[in-house]
Amino acid sequence: MRELTKGFIKENPIFILMLGLCPALAVSTQVVNALGMSAGVIFVLLGSNIMVSLLKNFIPDEIHIPVYIVIIATFVTLVDLLMQAYAPALSRSLGVFVQLIVVNCIILGRAEAFASKNGVKDSIMDALSMGLGFFFGLTLIALIREVLGAGTITLFPMGNFNGVIEVPGLVQAPVRIISLSAGALFVVGYLKAMFNWISSRPGKEEI
């Protein structure tokens, strides 16, 4: 269980390990993008961790990085093709950031640091933990940025629901800088400080 929950606070990939910051800053302008990006990252992380763990004794050390990149790129291309075919709205919304999962440090980092040294079961738990931690961190950043920067919360449209929840007061007068690049750095910086404070509190090391 500790293996599964470590990614949320103690080893949160965005705020503690500082991995995957580029997509975290870039796609966190809307909550729906964070949800879509997280789903893609979790799928690729699971697939790559399983494959790297299965092939760890087959892959010579000298070529392990190119092999990991080929494995990761394969799963990313799978996600991209499947999204284009079956979730075109999400694919359009995420644009180039789906392909950029290939160079997301979390994926390569976990393949190198964990999956290449552990069994399949533990690698699956690690992928889920880190993936859900990324989902938690990215969604938190996106929620703060979208609510403050645009006064809305954008989710997936369903039936008569157009997918956009407007926050009274903020939708008329949003703090627009929060939705811009500088706002992303502000939000991530303050959240990083908060996570540092939480993880450094005495007696809370096991969260």
């Binding site: 092939l55 087959f58 892959i59 010579p60 000298e62 070529i63 190119p66 092999v67 080929v70 494995i71 790129a73 394969t74 291309t77 799978l78 093709l81 499947l82 284009q84 075919a85 079956y86």
Partner: peptide, 28 residues
């Protein structure tokens, strides 16, 4: 041997992507 292993993994990846592409391309 290393080159062969890398080529094998690349070939398997290409095969998998080719299969998925053949399914998704007409839909796209």
């Amino acid at each position: 041997e290393k080159a062969g292993k890398l080529a094998l993994i690349c070939a398997l990846s290409a095969l998998l992507l080719g299969v998925v592409n053949s399914v998704t391309e007409p839909i796209i």
